[in-house]
Design a binder for these strands. Sequence first.
DNA 1: TTCATATTGACAACATATTGTCATTCTGTA
DNA 2: TACAGAATGACAATATGTTGTCAATATGAA
Lengths: 151, 151
Amino acid sequence: MKKPDRTAAGDAFASFSISVIRLAAHLNAAGDALAKPSGQTSARWQVLAAASHATMSVADIGRVLGLARQGVQRIADILETEGLVRYEENPAHQRAKLLMLTQAGEAALHDIQIRQAAWADTLGAEIGADDLRATTTTLARVLDSLARPKG
Amino acid sequence: MKKPDRTAAGDAFASFSISVIRLAAHLNAAGDALAKPSGQTSARWQVLAAASHATMSVADIGRVLGLARQGVQRIADILETEGLVRYEENPAHQRAKLLMLTQAGEAALHDIQIRQAAWADTLGAEIGADDLRATTTTLARVLDSLARPKG
DNA sequence: TTCATATTGACAACATATTGTCATTCTGTA
DNA sequence: TACAGAATGACAATATGTTGTCAATATGAA
């Protein structure tokens, strides 16, 4: 029962995939650490940031973040309970309320972003902007290939 | 309440992080799709692969995969229920049993690896081995920087 | 040998995310 | 306008992963 042969490019893609998944876990943990002093988590921070960036419904945020709307709804409901966001009537859609940050939500997001900026600046300087941009370009190409499997 | 300033490298790192996390989600979904015809999932496949690669305890596999041992234990117990792995006595440690693939486990893993090879070869050819290797190198550098925050 | 320390498996609580289903509310087309 | 189909929120089931705790077992140093 031996391992099937792969091309050199296939081997490279497999190694690459493992690295991406492991790094993502570490980045998520880092995000949790950045959000924790504000009593938040990486996931809630993403929802706060999306809502801050533009007024959107829960389903909209799901699309922007690439997540199922059900998961975003769960987070948003928690954030509402904590008083960081509120649901506003949507003149364009009776069911799809608009998610708005409260003052407390703005403050929490700002605190997190302060910490995130220092963290990203440090890591960015360590790795180098050129390498990061080149790598991000390749990541986008892979994402594109995965999204259009017959591309 | 404006967004804090970041350096250009900080911006690059932030974009990079978002791309890594999004791509990881897609790769995990792709892994689930590869494992599904064998009645498995990405996570169970990783445990099967680790156990196949070398005889290890559950805690060993957790370290190899970079996961908490408790999560690996949960997966391993499910795989045992399904008859894909079995626990063997460990002469070196009374509690830490060794995880061994059964014939059914070997067969399931092999099926998945067949599909994975074709998938990785296709994507690898599409992206290019050189770009993948260069990108993987940068990912490793970031992982290293994250692991040694004061590095 | 002894004993402090680390490792391990078991168990529980929790956070994140997916898929599926349902009823309600749009939307676009005929 | 009418109506088929899409989108949305609510709810449930499930999968993955984390942290924390506990007792049993190894390990290493005094």
